[in-house]
Simulated scan of single mutants.
Amino acid sequence: MRFLTQKLLALAAFAAPAFAGEIAKPSTDSTDNFQRFSAVPVLGYTEETQYQFGAMAIIFFKPEFEGGKASELDLSFYGTSRKQVTGSISPKFYLLNDRISGNVELHYEDWVGNYFARKNNPDIDDYRKFDRQTFYLKTHINTNFGTKQWHPDFKYGLFFEFNSTNIDFNNYHYHGSIEEPENTDGWRNGIGYHLSIDTRDNTNWARHGYLVQWGHYFYNKGLGDYSYTHQELDIRGYSEFIWNTSMAVGFLWQRVDGNAPFDKLAGSDGLKRFRGVEKNYFYGEQAMFLQVEFRKKLFWRLAGDIFFEGGKTGDYFSDLMRNKWHRSLGFGGRFALNKKENLYARCELSWVDFKNVGMTMYVRDAF
């Protein structure tokens, strides 16, 4: 997301309450002090949305066994002073003694977006506005049935997405040279698989271990309106650092082949991979991201982080290798929604390409 310098004070004033405290204090019982519920307001300001107003809430469910992982139900809704609206319901579950896990995301948004054209180095001040209405249901399911005996950390699973999107460029006047993309509206329905080796000690804030995951997702006109494939390799490592600080290192490579809509190509997402820019600020058929982050708990429910990110895109591998890196340096504050589960909401500022300031608010870590 893009920010003007004169708005930084307003941004800080309106973003701070999101980390001021929990709306509902966690309920406890006399035996295990299990936290049932947590919520925070969404209050912020960005150049893309202007003022944001809403709330996020998480309901926690007791693990099936001692030391097991807690299932969750995530709820979020917010609107903006630019008449943008978004909401989501997302259960995250662990079943059969954590042998099956996954998440489901039901999401709707009526949004105003900016199209910067398909390139690695766009002009941040040259874009076409569009209206987007999106509804999607997305599911990831993982299991280690049949593999636990020979590799307990190996998992495999399925991916499903049902996505209906309508995009309209006609409501805004534009006098530049950026042409409208060809592929916009329609159903983007797909199915795929992923394979992973996951030794992380915690899926929210990991302090030890690593994750290596390969995903291959297929979208076909037999299911929707587009035919393309999406491949990605996600590698992450975690370790302890000095002064009780944890260090996280991430690498992501993405590739999209076929007749994909412009908003489904490989590129920045603005929340987890290259924070502080709008979704698909830079994008192409392939994308690569490198991330390093240092996280530290401070006191009470507060924590902080500093990070460095690099990212670039290209339409084929040699193009990707030639293109210049986008770079981002940033820091943020965190508020613990559930200390036992190491679940934090975060608010971060980014210095994008050492020229523009961006902001990100999200629940859970970027990687």
Rank of each mutant, 00 (worst) to 15 (best):
S318C: 12
F307H: 06
H326W: 07
L320F: 10
F308L: 12
F307K: 03
F308Q: 13
T313P: 10
F307S: 01
M288V: 15
G311M: 05
V292E: 15
F289R: 01
G311K: 03
Y316I: 10
A303H: 01
L290V: 15
E285T: 12
L298G: 02
S328A: 10
K312R: 10
K324L: 11
L298P: 01
W300F: 08
I306R: 03
K297W: 08
I306W: 00
L298I: 00
T313V: 13
E293A: 03
W325V: 06
L290D: 11
F294E: 06
K312S: 04
M321F: 13
G333P: 00
W325A: 07
F294W: 08
S328W: 03
G332R: 02
E309C: 01
F307E: 01
L320I: 04
F299H: 03
G304M: 01
E285G: 15
Y316H: 14
W325E: 04
D305C: 07
A287N: 10
F331H: 07
L320P: 02
F289C: 10
L290I: 15
Q286T: 08
N323T: 06
A303L: 00
G314M: 13
G333R: 06
G310P: 09
L329N: 08
K296Q: 08
T313C: 13
T313R: 10
Q286Y: 09
M288G: 12
F317Y: 15
Q286F: 09
G314W: 15
D319Y: 12
R301W: 03
G332C: 01
G333S: 06
F307L: 02
L320G: 03
F294D: 05
G330M: 02
R327G: 11
A287S: 14
L298F: 03
F317Q: 15
L298A: 01
E309K: 04
L329F: 06
A287Y: 07
T313I: 11
Y316E: 14
L298M: 05
K296A: 02
K312Y: 08
G332K: 01
I306H: 05
S318W: 14
F317T: 14
L302N: 09
R322H: 15
S318R: 13
F294N: 00
G314L: 14
K324D: 12
K312E: 06
G330D: 02
A303G: 03
K297Q: 09
L290F: 13
R295T: 00
W325M: 08
W325Q: 07
